[in-house]
Simulated scan of single mutants.
Amino acid sequence: MLRKSALVIFITLFSSLAFFNFCSADTSGKTTTAKDFDPNEDTGFFYTIQKGDTLWDLSQRFYSSEWDWPGLWEMNQEIKNPHWIYPGKVIRVYLKDPTKKIKPPEPKQEMEPIIVQPPFIPKFAYPMIDMVGFIRPQTIESLGRIIKEEDSNLMIGTDDLIFIRPASEGSLAEGTIYHVFETEPVQDMETGFSGIKHLIKGSIEIIEDKGTYVKAVVKKTIREFREGDRIMPYFDREPVFEVVKNPQTIDAVMLCSEDNHLMINNGFIAFMDRGRRSNIEQGHIYTVYQDNLPLQSSNTDIFNNHKEVALEPLIAGQVIVLHTEEDSSTIMVVSSRYDIQAGDMIN
């Protein structure tokens, strides 16, 4: 089913409005009162306006078409007048639909000077990146296990106090923040991939060492804590990073989502079976493909003989790499035209 929903960081269709006024950057130092995109709070692609930038020029440099600039303005409604954008302002940007064809420019009779534009490199912000899981060949060593919540409450939330049994003496240090996690096996029968999914449930801070147990305060929960949940070091990751749109071919497979959704759509965190060994890095953008199966009636000729018809794959969406391991990567779906599923191809 064609998906009509999308992250706030994207717009699916833009009207083909043709405005001939240029949107020049004001260098007077005036600031806008509207709230800018905040990489510490907001998720999405963004770009910081430089002196001399215009929405027209940015549209040409990023989307190879000046006429996509109304889409940029639509995404950044705090810009009251598109003719004036200010250096230092952070604006939201979107990924171009990989299925959209760009009309080549008409050949010109006269030679024009070639103007080399500086590279337009957007960035991606994901403030919750410290909480994304990962897949490794073996389970990471546990530093301890949750015994119970201080008041024996079944539901454990932010600021609650909990007791933890350390794996060994000194394995959990006072004043240190740790991740709480659980694991489950991941296996793909077709590719032979196997590993252990580490699902991060939140973070805690050790406040007191009692010898045989430690006392901790819950800093953040994104999934329910339970008795027996394990403790591992806190992985501090950079929430803002540059985007690489055209990395090399990888021939990867979508393994699963963090929470094993059957349909993996916009904003979902998932995993693929390629990582650093395949030169994959944080910020790489890849396209998700699905088999394009012909209708049953098209598989026979006029004599009712069965025949195979190979169709080119469907483009189902795009993903961005958030974290890499040696042979796997954690990814986020940033656009989806169809419901993405485990087993879909990524390239």
Rank of each mutant, 00 (worst) to 15 (best):
Ile121Ser: 10
Ile121Met: 11
Ile121Glu: 10
Ile121Val: 15
Pro122Phe: 11
Lys123Glu: 11
Phe124Val: 10
Ala125Leu: 06
Tyr126Lys: 05
Tyr126Asp: 08
Pro127Thr: 10
Pro127His: 09
Pro127Leu: 11
Met128Ala: 13
Ile129Pro: 00
Asp130Ile: 08
Asp130Met: 07
Asp130Cys: 07
Asp130Ala: 09
Met131Ser: 11
Val132Asp: 00
Val132Glu: 01
Gly133His: 02
Gly133Ile: 03
Phe134Gly: 06
Ile135Asp: 04
Ile135Pro: 10
Ile135Cys: 08
Pro137Arg: 11
Gln138Asp: 11
Thr139Val: 10
Ile140Tyr: 06
Ser142Thr: 03
Ser142Gly: 07
Leu143Trp: 02
Leu143Tyr: 03
Leu143Ser: 02
Leu143Ala: 03
Gly144Met: 02
Gly144Ser: 05
Gly144Ala: 05
Arg145Phe: 06
Arg145Asp: 14
Ile146Val: 15
Ile147Gln: 03
Ile147Gly: 03
Lys148Trp: 08
Glu149Asp: 07
Glu150Ser: 15
Glu150Thr: 12
Asp151Leu: 14
Asp151Tyr: 13
Ser152Trp: 12
Ser152Arg: 13
Ser152Ala: 13
Ser152Ile: 11
Asn153Glu: 09
Asn153Val: 06
Leu154Asn: 15
Leu154Lys: 14
Met155Cys: 10
Met155Asp: 13
Ile156His: 02
Ile156Tyr: 00
Gly157Val: 09
Thr158Phe: 10
Thr158Met: 14
Leu161Asn: 06
Leu161Arg: 01
Ile162Tyr: 02
Ile162Met: 07
Phe163Glu: 12
Ile164Val: 15
Ile164Cys: 07
Ile164Phe: 02
Arg165Phe: 12
Arg165Glu: 15
Pro166Met: 01
Pro166Lys: 00
Ala167Met: 10
Ser168Lys: 05
Ser168Glu: 08
Gly170Trp: 01
Ser171Phe: 01
Ser171Met: 05
Leu172Cys: 04
Leu172Phe: 03
